[in-house]
Design a protein around this nucleic acid. Sequence first.
DNA 1: ACACTCACG
DNA 2: ACGTACGTGAGTGTA
Length: 618
Amino acid sequence: MKVYNYEIAGDPVTVRVPETLADLDEFLMWVAAAEKAGPIALDTETSGLDVYSTGYRLRTVQFGDRRVGWVLHWERGGRFQEVALEVLRRCPRFLIHNAPFDWAVIDRHASVSLESLAPRTTDTRILAALVDPRQPQEGGRGTALKPLSAWYLDPRAPDTQEDLTAIFHDYGLTKAQGFARIPLNDPTYNLYAGLDVILTARLEPALRRELDMLEVRPRLVQYEHEIARICAVMQRTGMILDVPYTKALAARLADEEQHYASVALAYGVENINATRQVADALIMMGEDLRERTKTGAFKVDKAVLLRLADLDRDWKRLGQREPNPLADAIIRSKRAGKWRTAYAETFLSVLDAEGRVHPFINSLQARTGRMSITRPALQTLPSSDQMIRRCLLAEPGHVMVSTDFQAIEMRVLAALADVKKMKEGFVNGGADFDIHMYTARLIKGEGATQKDRKLFKGAGFGKVYGGGVKTLARQTGATEEEISRAVAAYDREYPEIKRASARWQRQARETGLVHVSVTGRRLPLDRERMYAIVNYACQSVARDCLGQSLIDLEANGLLPYLRLPIHDEVVASVPEREAPEIAREIARCMTFDLYGVPIVADSDIGKRSWGSLYGADE
DNA sequence: ACACTCACG
DNA sequence: ACGTACGTGAGTGTA
């Protein structure tokens, strides 16, 4: 047995690494005593983050409590695996920091299903996010093990990830290579593997105390664990990639990128992504660049370039000027490049052996509680065009179904701020109710036009996001005069919104600049951006509408069809013959009442590819 | 590390 | 007193 001693918060702690069968027996004796005393902290070390790719390895499984961390060398096989498996199967409660990752690893590489493990897990990262969901850049502590340990346990708690990177460099390895190739018996590697479970074991009671003190509802904690498990199932299922199409697409995008880059080169732009070069070249051509970035540089983003190329937001000719060929080439080359690298090639790079992609679904990421999806970022695929979404397919014999809430944030706003006329509209409006046209008619009468609708849609977003007249004018294309009149009219019709914002801000000032949402979620505010409270309240409750829907969808047996949550939408793969029926079921699970406001969802049934729900053909 | 850009809800 | 667009992930260039 290798034994490493360390100190956390003045307490001696020990990391034990079994080497012999007798050591493993000693470990089992410890487990028998520890599992009676409480949950056991659990963690894994693996060859990296690409859990689903071939050649991926589970290297160690760690178990521990406040005093001792055991590092089991899974990679050695045999009895080491048997013992780890026995404990994984038997132990009634586990503590894991960022459980979805370890659930995925253990489900796939240690044959203990996440259905078995997840109900026995407390995720300390969830606890931390419910105390304070902010990232370090936002003034929070973040939800990583290191900053939480430093705050709650010991300011000198080791940064195990950071320090390991240094060790990797000693071995001549990069960070990415290090986790796969560092020798299994490296002392620092084992020490830190063991310390992580000890820190997790110590974090849990500290976070529980904090949640109790802040009166965070236990029901909310449980709800988040259920959502995390449901998202982990979706991640494990993944989506089928149309590999031949994606490869051809990547090649086509590369050609397009190259073609337009060579056009740009003819105008002296060697690197189309170098904004300085682009600005210089455009000025040389006689263009008058007016907009500046925050740091004073010339702004040459898509909006600027489209105008110079005489194109509207849908890339249609405006006929207002002679198109600038350089601006045109740059937007085309940049778009092709981004679509190739961020989407097509990422899909191919994360593919598993069965041709599926498994995006990491982080069920509790944003400061409002919103989810995020990474590797690949499937929440942000271009929707203007089916080209990229066409890469992803429903199961054989299935079709893609997308079900989204109708104007969820406006409905949540009406419910939370008790906006009388808005609520009336939602209650009496029927299935095809259009809140923005309704608002336009309230203000302009029955003769309200599509242009009016657009104006009041902008004003509505202004209310939800806290936007000003200038920004709204820029976004909608209306004049500042039109916008300020629209906003004033909006406030007259829906006076409760301003009042709610003021009330919530006053309450938050009394409670340490934290808004507690109706679901019990703590939403810390920035003193200089108190107006954001309306958005935080609406966005987070809308997120909880989606979360509750996921729970209801699972309860109705629909989880096997689900593929992705996208803020106000659920994407599913559904057997073609039953598609209308299942789509109706999904929409039904996403339909309910929120404080007297109907929350309503619509399903769209596509064909085999996700792209079929976008654009014209297929 | 930071700035800029661009994709989404 | 007044006014402030919200939340993400990812790639590339620059210093």
